[in-house]
Simulated assay, not measured.
Amino acid sequence: MQATVEWQHDLVFTATSGTGHSVTLDGNKTAGASPMEMVLAAAGACSSVDVVSILEKARQQVTGCRCEVKGERADAVPAVYTSIHLHFVVTGHDVAEKHVERAVQLSAEKYCSVAKMLEAAVTITHSFAIEQAA
């Protein structure tokens, strides 16, 4: 894997992945997300991919999945994350709690590469809720 990060102006950069996808990052948070916000987003996205994939394999009727990610940072520089909490809100038709619990657990313990990488230095916790689809 590879990526290129190119300075645009001020503290605005364009990051381009090896597959050609681009995202704007901004140290001032005006033109894009900050790099630290993207770390949270990456953890939420990586784990969400796992959760949705596992639920689909379990033949659950999932119509939506939202991961609300909250991070606490150290007060000193560098202001690294000290804790991250991922809360999944799964929407669907008759989605079984046991399947969601298992999917979140498998992502946390085995599959989410981003979270597994971060957990060496950060306390990562998980929770979930299930909402019935209309």
Score class of each variant (00 low, 15 high):
residue 10 D to H: 14
residue 116 K to P: 04
residue 34 S to H: 12
residue 123 T to H: 12
residue 65 C to H: 01
residue 9 H to D: 12
residue 125 T to P: 08
residue 75 D to I: 09
residue 33 A to I: 11
residue 15 A to I: 05
residue 39 V to H: 04
residue 77 V to E: 10
residue 32 G to H: 02
residue 3 A to E: 03
residue 79 A to N: 13
residue 52 V to F: 01
residue 118 L to P: 01
residue 71 G to E: 06
residue 103 A to Y: 00
residue 41 A to Q: 09
residue 3 A to G: 03
residue 34 S to T: 15
residue 10 D to T: 12
residue 53 S to R: 04
residue 72 E to L: 11
residue 56 E to F: 05
residue 62 V to M: 04
residue 42 A to P: 07
residue 84 I to H: 07
residue 97 E to T: 05
residue 77 V to R: 08
residue 1 M to W: 05
residue 101 E to S: 10
residue 116 K to M: 08
residue 44 G to I: 02
residue 114 V to I: 12
residue 86 L to E: 01
residue 94 D to V: 03
residue 7 W to I: 01
residue 63 T to D: 11
residue 13 F to C: 04
residue 25 L to A: 14
residue 43 A to P: 09
residue 66 R to F: 07
residue 128 F to P: 11
residue 99 H to T: 06
residue 65 C to N: 10
residue 43 A to N: 00
residue 58 A to I: 05
residue 46 C to S: 10
residue 108 A to S: 15
residue 63 T to Y: 07
residue 11 L to P: 05
residue 91 T to K: 03
residue 20 G to S: 13
residue 12 V to G: 03
residue 96 A to V: 05
residue 66 R to Y: 06
residue 110 K to I: 07
residue 70 K to C: 08
residue 86 L to M: 14
residue 71 G to A: 05
residue 1 M to S: 12
residue 124 I to K: 00
residue 2 Q to C: 06
residue 53 S to A: 15
residue 113 S to G: 14
residue 89 V to M: 04
residue 55 L to Y: 00
residue 14 T to P: 08
residue 39 V to L: 14
residue 14 T to C: 10
residue 121 A to E: 10
residue 69 V to N: 00
residue 26 D to W: 00
residue 21 H to S: 04
residue 82 T to F: 12
residue 96 A to W: 02
residue 109 E to W: 06
residue 65 C to S: 12
residue 57 K to T: 00
residue 21 H to T: 03
residue 12 V to F: 03
residue 60 Q to Y: 02
residue 88 F to M: 12
residue 54 I to G: 08
residue 29 K to F: 14
residue 110 K to M: 03
residue 106 L to E: 05
residue 58 A to K: 14
residue 19 T to K: 14
residue 37 E to T: 12
residue 73 R to S: 05
residue 115 A to H: 07
residue 121 A to K: 13
residue 77 V to A: 11
residue 96 A to I: 02
residue 69 V to K: 00
residue 46 C to D: 11
residue 77 V to Q: 08
residue 67 C to R: 01
residue 11 L to S: 08
residue 108 A to H: 13
residue 10 D to F: 11
residue 24 T to S: 07
residue 42 A to V: 05
residue 121 A to Y: 08
residue 44 G to D: 06
residue 96 A to F: 02
residue 130 I to Y: 04
residue 115 A to I: 10
residue 38 M to P: 10
residue 21 H to C: 08
residue 89 V to Y: 01
residue 102 R to L: 09
residue 127 S to W: 01
residue 51 V to A: 02
residue 56 E to L: 10
residue 46 C to G: 11
residue 52 V to D: 07
residue 17 S to D: 10
residue 37 E to D: 12
residue 19 T to I: 11
residue 26 D to A: 01
residue 93 H to K: 12
residue 58 A to M: 13
residue 117 M to G: 01
residue 49 V to E: 10
residue 42 A to S: 15
residue 13 F to E: 09
residue 19 T to A: 15
residue 24 T to Q: 10
residue 22 S to P: 09
residue 36 M to N: 00
residue 95 V to A: 04
residue 5 V to E: 06
residue 128 F to Q: 11
residue 124 I to L: 11
